[in-house]
C-alpha cells in the first residue's frame, strides 16, 4: 500500500477529525463561546431591534473571531505534548502540506460550524434577513483565513508560559483586515443593499494570499519551536 503525499495529508486530516470528534468537548467550547458572546450584547445594549441591527455585523464577526482565537490552541498543543507533532517534523512529506491538512481539519471543526450557526444568531441580533446570506458567505471565506493566520502564533507559542493569552495578543492585529472586510460585507448588504461583492472578493483575495503563505510560515514556526 504505497503511501503518497495526498494520502498522507488525507490521513492527517481524517485522524485530526477523529481525534477531535472523540474529544468533542473542545470543539463545542468554541461554538458555545460564540453563542454566549453574541447573546451578551442585547443584554448590554437593550433589546431595541433598531440598535441591535446596526451592531449585528460587527458583533457577529468579532464573536466569531474571538471564538477562533480561543480554539487556536487545539491546533498543535495536544500533539506537541504527546510527541506526534515531533513525528510530523521527521516525516518524509513536506511539513507545510501536513500542517495545511491539520489547519483544514481545525477549520472544519471551528470555522465551518461558526459559519453554519451564525444565521441563528443573526436573527437574535435582528440582522435583516437579506444580509444573512452575506454573513454566512463572509464567514465561510473569512474563518479559513483566521485558522491559517492563527496557525503561525499557535506554533510559535508552543510550550511557552502564558501561551494561551499570548496567542491572542499576537494574532489579533493580524486579524484586523479580515474583520474589516468581513464585517463591512455584512453591513453593506444589511444597509441599503450595496453589493457586498467587492468586500467578499477582497476577502477571497486575502484568503488566496494567506493559503500560499501561512502553511510555510507555520511549519517554519514549528521547526523553531521544536528545535
Amino acid at each position: 500500500m504505497k503511501g503518497g503525499l495526498l494520502s498522507a495529508m488525507a490521513a492527517v486530516f481524517t485522524r485530526e477529525l477523529l481525534v477531535f470528534w472523540r474529544r468533542s468537548t473542545e470543539v463545542m467550547t468554541a461554538l458555545v463561546f460564540f453563542v454566549i458572546v453574541t447573546t451578551l450584547f442585547p443584554l448590554a445594549v437593550g433589546p431595541e431591534r433598531h440598535e441591535l441591527m446596526l451592531m449585528a455585523p460587527g458583533v457577529l464577526w468579532v464573536a466569531a473571531l474571538l471564538a477562533t482565537t480561543l480554539s487556536l490552541n487545539h491546533l498543535f498543543a495536544s500533539d506537541y505534548q504527546d510527541g506526534s507533532l515531533e513525528q510530523l517534523l521527521v516525516s518524509p512529506y513536506p511539513l507545510s502540506a501536513l500542517v495545511f491538512a491539520k489547519i483544514a481539519a481545525h477549520w472544519v471543526l471551528t470555522g465551518l460550524p461558526l459559519a453554519l450557526l451564525s444565521p441563528l444568531l443573526a436573527v437574535q441580533m435582528a440582522l435583516p434577513t437579506k444580509a444573512i446570506g452575506t454573513l454566512v458567505g463572509s464567514l465561510l471565506l473569512g474563518t479559513p483565513i483566521l485558522s491559517l493566520i492563527g496557525a503561525v502564533p499557535a506554533a510559535l507559542t508552543l510550550g511557552v508560559r502564558g501561551g494561551g493569552v499570548l496567542v491572542s495578543l499576537l494574532v489579533l492585529p493580524l486579524y484586523t483586515p479580515v474583520l474589516i472586510f468581513g464585517a463591512e460585507a455584512v453591513a453593506a448588504s444589511a444597509g441599503q443593499g450595496f453589493a457586498s461583492v467587492a468586500h467578499l472578493s477582497l476577502l477571497g483575495a486575502f484568503l488566496a494570499v494567506v493559503v500560499s503563505f501561512a502553511p510555510w510560515a507555520s511549519s517554519a514556526a514549528l521547526r523553531v519551536s521544536l528545535d
Partner: peptide, 20 residues
C-alpha cells in the same frame, strides 16, 4: 527565531493592514 517569523509575517501584513 520565533520572533523573527512573527516579524516576517507582520511585515507582510503591514501593507494589507494599511490599505484595509
Amino acid at each position: 527565531h520565533a520572533s523573527a517569523i512573527l516579524a516576517i509575517v507582520g511585515v507582510v501584513n503591514i501593507p494589507i493592514i494599511h490599505y484595509s
